[in-house]
């Protein structure tokens, strides 16, 4: 009885963590090239989920099919976010940028409340009820898809950042923007594309999470906090660290809910975060890779 339960929890945490890692990757690449920690991240994730809902209710699209609409929309939104809100802030105090993104978070959250109402909603999917049973471990269909897509996307991102000329530009902008500009890299353009990419990754995370999940306009901040924890645990710009941070938080959430009774179970991921931040302020793997 004990070992199957343990395995089930492990798998749940792993599946959850892979999606958290993906969410956090979107934030981490944006942070890496622009130094902006986006406190509206969770609300944009929420927005992507509501776009899936809209695609379902008006066009009867399955969330996975809706990605053809949601991903381009979110990428365009990311470009607009950079061009009109982040770019004019270059050189300003970090705390002001944080407050700007908090303002945007409030706008998105209230906009969703106005457009979709305060009742929790669900977006069904065809594979929602499909189960994969291996031994004693049961995995829901959407979670399996989420794991697969997360792994593939993370590998693609890793390869494109390390092996392509675009990736080289991104890394150059991350390290020393001025030197990158002197080497002929168009820094604003690189940042613009990275914002689009970050928001597209975020949209994918939203689509992967949404099937069968109850969504609510005020959920955004909670996702922001989780994403921030994962990114900070990962050491901010260390993308492998960020994925590991996602797994750690996902596992902590799964094990906390199953094995630790009551409140302290839900609090476990936050406690782990606070402890790691106190004793390893540079993140799990320390510093940038």
């Amino acid at each position: 009885m004990l070992i199957p339960e343990f395995l089930q929890t492990l798998v749940q945490g792993f599946l959850l963590g892979s999606t958290y890692g993906l969410m956090a990757l979107g934030m981490a690449i944006i942070y890496a090239v622009s130094g902006v920690l986006n406190f509206a991240h969770g609300d944009f994730l929420s927005l992507a989920m509501y776009l899936c809902l809209a695609a379902f209710s008006y066009l009867a699209f399955d969330p996975y099919l809706a990605s053809v609409i949601v991903i381009p929309c979110m990428a365009a939104l990311g470009m607009g976010f950079y061009q009109w809100l982040v770019r004019p802030m270059v050189g300003r105090q970090m705390l002001m940028i944080v407050q700007l993104t908090l303002g945007v978070a409030f706008m998105v959250q209230s906009g969703l409340l106005m457009a979709f109402g305060g009742q929790p909603k669900r977006v069904p999917s065809v594979i929602e009820a499909k189960l994969l049973i291996v031994g004693d471990v049961v995995v829901r269909g959407p979670q399996l898809v989420a794991l697969g897509v997360s792994v593939v996307l993370a590998i693609c991102l890793y390869l494109s950042l390390n092996k392509t000329s675009f990736g080289r530009e991104v890394r150059a902008v991350q390290q020393v923007p001025r030197a990158a500009a002197l080497m002929g890299i168009n820094v604003p353009r690189t940042r613009l594309i990275t914002f689009a990419l970050g928001f597209a990754v975020l949209a994918v995370a939203g689509i992967l999470l949404v099937p069968g999940l109850p969504i609510h306009p005020s959920q955004g901040l909670r996702y922001t906090v989780i994403t921030l924890m994962v990114v900070v645990l990962g050491g901010l710009t260390n993308f492998v660290g960020v994925l590991l941070g996602g797994l750690l938080i996902g596992l902590a959430e799964a094990f906390g809910t199953v094995y630790v009774s009551g409140v302290s179970g839900f609090v476990l991921p936050y406690l782990i975060f606070i402890l790691i931040l106190l004793f390893r302020p540079k993140g799990l793997l320390g510093g940038a890779a």
């Binding site: 809100l85 002001m96 407050q99 908090l102 303002g103 409030f106 706008m107 959250q109």
Partner: peptide, 19 residues
């Protein structure tokens, strides 16, 4: 009619003021 309008306006105002 529009339950989130006032917080939406706060959000928009902070963005405008900061910029």
């Amino acid at each position: 009619v529009l339950p989130g309008l006032h917080t939406f306006i706060y959000g928009a105002l902070i963005v405008i003021v900061i910029l």
